[in-house]
């Protein structure tokens, strides 16, 4: 964009006729907003002229009304807030579980040969597996209640937390460790005061990626086996061909994912402002 404006400025200098200011390019944010507007406009036109059956594609207005009704009266015995609450409870429960397991596991992989030998094959087995592949097994093992969903989500979050922790640990500066040792640090102190803080930026990145993976898994898990939650709400609506609620649900899922990502980035910036200054 700056290149474009520089070119414009150059053009302005050479021709002397058009002021450089006249050809100011559109900011990307404006282009993006216009794109969203055009898509919604086309969608509205398509439904207004009945190009597509409302069963397949309800109008934007219907979706907004569905959204409003979801908030006020709800769908399948729960309001939108309750469905979202159930989903968030699962994802944060799973996040806490995977942090409690993932960070020590990552430390073990990053600091010890034995730890790496033991945990590497497990992580490498788990990492490429689609969570839905082991969901049925998890249901057999822990039942169809909350535990199975939290377990599956936590399993889908674990690899990125473990791998980012171990990568962060392995990237710790040798001088930082040696400095602590020469200042009198014990092994445990080196781990607690140097290795762990220095891996925090990497761990936070891992948590952010894990949240994305977890959210995807959550919705999928709720589609298969749940009695509440945003994924379950969509699944139920689809069974009754209530397409407006399906679309409203999809929009809510996307919005929550965006908010989660934004909050995670905010926490990263507040917690480790030094990460960009190493």
């Amino acid at each position: 964009m700056t290149l474009l404006s520089e070119l414009d400025a150059l053009a302005g200098e050479t021709t002397d006729e058009t002021p450089a200011r006249a050809a100011r390019p559109l900011p990307i944010a404006v282009i993006s907003t216009l794109t969203v507007g055009v898509i919604i406009g086309l969608w509205a036109l398509a439904s207004a002229y009945a190009l597509v059956s409302p069963v397949f594609l309800p109008s934007p207005r219907q979706v907004v009304i569905a959204l409003y009704n979801l908030v006020v009266t709800g769908f399948v015995d729960a309001t939108l807030a309750e469905h979202v609450g159930a989903s968030l409870y699962r994802i944060f429960g799973a996040l806490i579980a995977s942090i409690l397991i993932g960070i020590p596991a990552g430390l073990a992989i990053g600091t010890s040969r034995v730890g790496r030998g033991i945990l590497d094959p497990i992580v490498e087995f788990l990492r490429p597996l689609p969570p839905l592949a082991y969901l049925p097994l998890v249901i057999i093992w822990v039942g169809i209640g909350e535990a199975s969903k939290i377990t599956v989500i936590a399993l889908s979050m674990l690899p990125s937390i473990i791998l980012s922790t171990s990568a962060g640990v392995r990237a710790v500066s040798k001088d930082h460790i040696n400095a602590a040792r020469s200042l009198g640090a014990s092994k445990a102190q080196v781990l607690r005061e140097v290795v762990l803080p220095s891996a925090v930026p990497s761990i936070l990145t891992g948590i952010r990626i894990a949240l994305g993976a977890g959210w995807t898994t959550l919705v999928a898990a709720e589609l298969v086996a749940a009695t509440s939650g945003i994924g379950f709400m969509i699944q139920s609506a689809a069974q009754f061909l209530v397409t407006d609620i399906v679309i409203a649900g999809i929009i809510v899922i996307a919005l929550i994912a965006i908010v989660l990502e934004y909050v995670a980035r905010l926490i990263e910036r507040r917690l480790v402002p030094w990460a960009s200054h190493r």
């Binding site: 930082h176 400095a179 040792r181 020469s182 200042l183």
Partner: peptide, 17 residues
């Protein structure tokens, strides 16, 4: 290593956090 022999490094090795 021990605190009776403290090292000062060329790249300071200070802790940015």
């Amino acid at each position: 290593p021990g605190a009776d022999r403290a090292v000062v490094f060329q790249d300071d090795a200070l802790y940015p956090w």
